[in-house]
Simulated assay, not measured.
Amino acid sequence: MDLDVFVTAHSAEWDRLEALLRRKRRLTGAEADELVALYQRTTTHLSLLLSTAPDPALTGRLTSLVARARSAVTGARKASWRDAARFFTTAFPAAVYRLRHWWIPTAVLSLTVAALLGWWIAAHPEVQAAIGAPEDLRAMTRPGGEYETYYSSHPAAAFAAQVWTNNAQAVALCLVLGAFAAVPVLWILFQNMLNLGVGIGLMSSAGRLDTFMGLILPHGLLELTAVFIAAGIGLRLGWTLIDPGPRTRRTALAQEGRTALGVAIGLAAVLFLSGALEGFVTPSGLPTWARVTIGAAAELAFLLYVYVLGGRAVRAGEAGDLATPDREAPLPTAA
């Protein structure tokens, strides 16, 4: 191809396309049609140039021109409040509901492990001695001890922010590390249940299990639910790597990874509420029954949110992934 002849033949079209792209006012219907036609022709010109006579300067100009024209033709999609509303009313609860068969068994098994650890510690003084010296354990479990003062040791707002940050990091790690064969997720989950089991065992051995549960339940119901959801979905992500099902492994990991990312964002909001309960309700002067009732009400509201909105969305075909226009169409594959 003679490059000079090619440029002479088509430079007027490129100049016209550039002029249309520089227009400040809204294009008329005829100008918009012309812009689309020139964009298509220039794309073809760039393809021919790259395959036959890749002149760097001309290639750079046409590449920039095609990119600008494509942006003008297709438009850039902007996030809106409607996207946020769709996420919290449809995508997030649908993802949590769809994957309930992973996080509910995770919750049951984890709480069973915590209860068994608590019983083992409470029933065996030698295990308690391995945890700490008797005077240290008494300082932790006595009335006004460390277990009770922990929740009021810092200003409520600062404490709530710290709790939220720590819990959000744990949830994010569960979701992200699920891709690594899920082993790190099990370790994080075990560490959480070990801490809970130690508290149950030590306070039970001191005859103050009711006090401990009164401190844990107001915020712990919602907090642990978020952790179990993150761990369950992290395990599901790890299992997808092993068994992607009828989807290709790449497609399955992409879908489940996007879902996990969305769940992480949604759980950050859940943990924000849990942190507020831990910072303001747990150490408050309210009676134990009132504090536990507030925590139970928050937990019930979240479960209803997941089962009502999420169940409805899943039955309507929602999977908790991005909206169809925001994700690439899967390529057809042979069965």
Rank of each mutant, 00 (worst) to 15 (best):
L99D: 12
F190Q: 01
G118Y: 04
V113P: 02
S47I: 11
G232A: 04
L322Y: 13
L253S: 08
V185W: 01
G118L: 05
I265R: 09
R98P: 00
L58H: 11
S153H: 09
I294F: 02
A130F: 11
P56G: 10
T90P: 00
A301W: 08
A156T: 00
G262A: 07
W187E: 01
Q128G: 12
A32M: 07
V227C: 03
R236M: 07
A84M: 12
G214L: 01
A84L: 15
P325A: 04
L186V: 15
I216Q: 09
E146V: 07
D83G: 05
V7Q: 12
G279I: 11
P332A: 14
V306S: 08
A158M: 11
R291K: 15
W103C: 05
R68L: 13
Y151R: 04
A107Y: 05
V227Q: 05
G317N: 01
V281G: 09
T288Y: 00
F280E: 11
D4I: 05
A260C: 15
L137D: 04
A230T: 07
G144N: 06
R82K: 12
A298Y: 06
A172S: 14
T251G: 10
E126V: 09
F190K: 00
V171Y: 04
Q255E: 14
S153V: 04
P143V: 02
A329N: 02
A72C: 05
A107R: 04
F228R: 00
G320H: 06
I131G: 11
V198D: 06
K78D: 07
L27E: 01
A129K: 10
P125Y: 11
T225I: 05
L17G: 06
I229K: 05
F190H: 03
G60F: 11
L237D: 03
S204H: 08
G132L: 10
L241P: 01
L273I: 15
V163P: 00
A130P: 09
A323P: 00
V176A: 15
G262L: 14
W14T: 03
T240P: 00
T43F: 13
G118M: 04
A85K: 11
A84V: 15
L186H: 07
A129E: 11
L237M: 14
P244M: 11
A268Q: 08
F180N: 01
A264Y: 08
V281N: 10
Q191E: 06
L241G: 15
L175N: 02
T112K: 03
D243C: 12
A69R: 09
W119E: 08
L222C: 05
A179Y: 07
A226H: 01
V96P: 04
R142I: 08
G311F: 03
Y97W: 15
R25H: 09
D136F: 10
V113E: 03
I216N: 03
D4T: 13
L17R: 10
P287H: 12
L99A: 13
L241H: 12
R250Q: 13
E299S: 10
F280C: 11
E148S: 09
S152C: 05
K24Y: 01
K78R: 15
N166K: 14
A107N: 05
L237H: 14
S205C: 07
A30C: 00
E13H: 14
G266N: 09
Q40F: 05
P332K: 10
P105F: 09
R315S: 07
T42F: 04
G132E: 14
L177K: 03
L177V: 02
P246M: 11
